[in-house]
Nucleic acid binder design. Structure first.
Lengths: 137, 137
DNA sequence: TATATAGGTACCTTGTGGATACCAAGTGTG
DNA sequence: CACACTTGGTATCCACAAGGTACCTATATA
């Protein structure tokens, strides 16, 4: 988006390193990350509570996702060395800011997702009846 | 984000089907999709022009990505049956709207990517010197 | 013959996700 | 005493999907 070189040609490696949008997207556009941010919006939750809330997530995936989010500064992990152990996760300021960003994406999505879905239906219908136009052979 | 059930517990399958944000994110948060949208912002381009502009993309990936974007109604593909064949890709209205959405993400990213990067550095530094706090053992 | 056009397709490698088993400390139960 | 249960993880294996490489189509031009 913002890293070009040599007459409008992108060096993709430089792009991947330098593009802020891509860094953010890679941090957020994960299968579970958005769900976790939403789950934590109203206050801290324990590991087991999150696991039960996100019905279907495995321990491994939950651990991994939370670890990455903690590393990115989106969630804060607090360990209380009680017996049995108690680990709480909560959104940081940055995490709450992410939740705000997601609101914008959510609004746009709700406004336009129907267009995408309709385009897919129309495309699949076209593809069924007529073979797609190919330049050669 | 918007599909809950049974006392705040998410059915993830229903979520994956029903969540507009996720549908949109899956359509856009692709390795090449954002680059292609940006490349096409100033008018239609041919297949070969796109391939040269996105230095590093393979033919297969470019074909696949453009096909998906065409199916989602983001790009319009026009075939001119000349010799040699000529195929042009351009953004649809929806595609231009996506470019607008990406502007918001881009702004947020540029404002906050440094915080994420700093959090990562700090995390990695902490992880180096002290072992991470584990509840037991 | 080689190149340019716009792809299609078979194959291979990598990476990611899920399932499963296991751990460690203490607590409750028989 | 032996056992299972709790919490919050690790470690391991396996399957599936995504992505890349390489080679194929067909036609006109130099």
């Amino acid at each position: 988006m913002d890293t070009k070189c040599e007459a409008g040609k992108w060096n993709v490696d430089a792009y991947l390193r330098g593009c802020a949008s891509r860094t953010v997207l890679e941090a957020l556009a994960n299968k579970w990350t958005c769900l976790l941010i939403d789950a934590l919006r109203h206050g801290p939750l324990r590991f087991g509570e999150l696991r039960r809330k996100l019905d279907g997530i495995t321990q491994k995936s939950l651990t991994q996702t939370l670890r990455v989010m903690e590393r990115d500064g989106i969630v804060i992990r607090s360990v209380y060395p009680t017996i049995p152990p108690r680990v709480e996760y909560e959104l940081s300021d940055l995490g709450r800011s992410v939740a705000g960003l997601m609101e914008g994406v959510k609004r746009w999505s709700e406004e336009h997702v129907d267009e995408i879905l309709a385009a897919r239906e129309a495309y699949d219908l076209r593809a069924q009846e007529e073979p797609r136009p190919v330049p050669v052979g």
